[in-house]
Amino acid sequence: MTAILANRQEAGRLLSLRLANYYQQPDLIVLGLPRGGVPVAAAIASNLSLPLDICVVRKLGVPSHPELAMGAIASDGITVLNPSIIESCRVTPKMIEEVKTRELQELHRREQLYRGNRPYPSLAEKKVIIVDDGIATGATMEAAITSVKHQQPQEIIIATPIICDRIFSQLQCKVDRIISLLKLQSLDSISYWYANFNQVTDAEVCHLLSQTS
């Protein structure tokens, strides 16, 4: 099967059509998950004339298999863990803390780089659209949702081009609405569905944020 999305920008444009009811709504903000979610979020924010910001989260990889997520952490320290992965991979509490410490340092580096002197936006009583370029395991998105919920928003909407059906069901009860272009029974590779899935750089994230500041 050939890719159905040209790139992240097209994914954002198509998602904005599904989100047309939110056009220029007051007290609404779009948050992209760096790095890959930011170009998607920027296209949504631009097409709907909404403010753009970021919610920085990081996957917590199993020490022996870093690509395997045992959880995720947000820049405010909020952590989501997957007990079954931790148990099956025999990850000790000490190992978890070591990974958390390392990833939190990277989170703070990115937060400072992307945000600079701009304060984190107040989300209290606002509608928040959280955007990523695809959701396979749901770990980073769940950490983002938990972090955003602590600020007591009025409504949380997830927008993503591609999502695994099982993860859709898991996240559905945690937010008000999930908007996706494609819901798949299994999702082994997000990049498979994009013709262009080049890695998003820090410089690109900073550029996209500067265009909306």
Rank of each mutant, 00 (worst) to 15 (best):
C55P: 03
C55N: 12
V56E: 01
V56W: 00
V57Q: 02
R58C: 00
R58H: 07
K59N: 05
K59V: 00
K59H: 04
L60H: 05
L60P: 06
P63I: 04
P63C: 08
S64D: 10
S64F: 12
H65P: 01
P66R: 11
E67L: 07
E67S: 11
L68V: 15
A69T: 07
A69S: 11
M70N: 10
M70W: 09
G71S: 07
G71C: 06
I73T: 09
A74N: 05
A74S: 15
D76E: 08
D76N: 15
G77N: 08
G77I: 00
I78C: 12
T79F: 02
N82V: 08
P83K: 11
P83Q: 12
P83D: 11
S84P: 02
S84E: 15
S84Q: 15
S84N: 14
I85M: 13
I85A: 14
I85C: 08
I86T: 09
I86H: 10
I86R: 09
I86A: 08
E87R: 09
S88Y: 11
T92Y: 11
T92K: 11
T92D: 09
T92C: 06
P93S: 03
K94L: 07
M95F: 11
M95K: 14
I96V: 12
V99S: 10
T101G: 13
R102A: 14
E103I: 00
E106G: 04
E106T: 09
L107G: 00
R109G: 01
R109W: 09
R110T: 00
E111S: 10
Q112A: 11
Q112S: 13
R115M: 01
R118P: 04
P119Y: 03
Y120S: 14
Y120C: 08
P121Q: 09
S122A: 14
L123V: 01
L123H: 07
L123S: 06
K126L: 05
K126R: 15
K127W: 09
V128T: 01
I130N: 05
I130C: 04
I130Y: 05
V131K: 11
D132A: 03
D132F: 01
D132Q: 06
D133N: 12
G134H: 04
G134Q: 03
T137Q: 09
G138A: 03
M141K: 08
E142G: 02
A143P: 06
A143V: 02
A144K: 02
A144Q: 04
I145Q: 04
I145E: 02
I145W: 00
S147F: 01
S147A: 12
S147W: 01
V148H: 03
V148P: 02
K149V: 00
H150F: 10
Q152S: 13
Q152W: 08
Q152L: 14
P153N: 05
P153T: 03
P153G: 02
P153W: 00
Q154P: 04
Q154K: 15
E155F: 13
E155G: 03
E155P: 01
E155Q: 14
A159T: 05
